[in-house]
C-alpha cells in the first residue's frame, strides 16, 4: 500500500519535474523578454518626455483646444500622454512576445485576436476622443450662444449638446468594434426619439409660456423708448 502510494507520488513528481524542465526555459525567456520590454518601454518614455518637451506639442494642443477635450475633468498633458502611450504600447508588445514563447495554443489564439483587434481599437479610441473634443467644443459654443441670447438654462442646453455628441461617437465606435451593436443602436434611436418627443411636448405644452417669455423679451426695449441700435456700439 505504502509502496503504491510512493510510486504514484514519485510518478507525479517526475511528471511535474519533467514539465517544469520543459517549460522553465520558456518561462525564463518570457521573464527576460518582459524585463527587456519594460526597460525599452521606460527608455522610450524617457526619450518621448525629452523630445516632446523640446517640441511645441503642448502649445499645439493648447492652440487646437485639444487639451481641454475633457472639459477640465483632468488635464490632458500632451507630453505625459504620449510618454504613457509609448510605455504601455512597448510593454504590450513585450507581454505578447513573452506569451508567445510559451507555445500555448490558447495564448497564440488570444495573441492573434489581440493583434487583429488592435487597429480597430485604435480607430475606436480615436473616434471617441474626437467625439469628446467635438462635444466639448460644440457644448461650449452652445453655452456662449445661449448666454449671449440670454436663454434660460444655458448650462443644461450645453450639457445636452455635449452628451448627444459624445453618445453619438460612442455608438459609432461600438459599431466599428462590433461590440453590442444592437444595444447601442437601439439606445441611440430610443434617446433620439425621446428627445424629439420631449421637444414636441414642450413646444406644445409650453408654447404659452414661451410666447409670454418672448413677448416680455421683445417688450423690454419699449420700457426705455426705442431700441439701442447695434450701430450705437460701433
Amino acid at each position: 500500500m505504502i509502496e503504491a502510494l510512493r510510486l504514484i507520488l514519485r510518478t507525479t513528481l517526475d511528471r511535474l519535474w519533467e514539465q517544469a524542465v520543459n517549460y522553465l526555459p520558456s518561462i525564463l525567456a518570457s521573464v527576460i523578454i518582459l524585463a527587456v520590454a519594460w526597460l525599452i518601454a521606460a527608455l522610450m518614455r524617457f526619450l518621448v518626455l525629452r523630445l516632446f518637451r523640446g517640441a511645441a506639442i503642448d502649445r499645439f494642443l493648447r492652440t487646437s483646444g485639444l487639451n481641454s477635450v475633457t472639459g477640465g475633468v483632468f488635464s490632458l498633458g500632451a507630453t505625459r500622454l504620449a510618454a504613457a502611450v509609448c510605455f504601455w504600447g512597448v510593454l504590450l508588445v513585450g507581454v505578447m512576445t513573452a506569451l508567445s514563447t510559451l507555445n500555448s495554443a490558447l495564448i497564440a489564439r488570444l495573441t492573434e485576436q489581440a493583434v487583429m483587434l488592435l487597429p480597430k481599437l485604435v480607430t475606436a479610441a480615436i473616434i471617441v476622443l474626437g467625439g469628446l473634443w467635438l462635444g466639448q467644443y460644440l457644448s461650449r459654443s452652445a453655452l456662449i450662444w445661449a448666454c449671449n441670447q440670454r436663454l434660460p438654462s444655458a448650462h443644461n442646453l450645453a450639457g445636452l449638446v455635449r452628451i448627444a455628441v459624445v453618445f453619438l461617437s460612442v455608438v459609432v465606435a461600438a459599431d466599428h468594434l462590433n461590440f453590442a451593436r444592437g444595444v447601442f443602436l437601439s439606445a441611440f434611436v430610443i434617446c433620439l426619439a425621446g428627445i424629439v418627443l420631449a421637444i414636441s411636448l414642450s413646444a406644445g405644452l409650453g408654447r404659452h409660456d414661451m410666447l409670454n417669455w418672448l413677448s416680455r423679451r421683445e417688450s423690454r426695449p419699449e420700457e426705455t423708448g426705442r431700441e439701442w441700435s447695434l450701430w450705437n456700439h460701433l
Binding site: T63, S64, G65, Y137, R140, I144, W145, C147
Partner: peptide, 16 residues
C-alpha cells in the same frame, strides 16, 4: 493668440 481654435468662442464670451 494662444488659443487658435477656441479664439472665436473666447471673443464671443467677451460680450457680457
Amino acid at each position: 493668440r494662444e488659443r487658435g481654435v477656441e479664439r472665436g468662442q473666447l471673443l464671443r464670451s467677451l460680450t457680457p
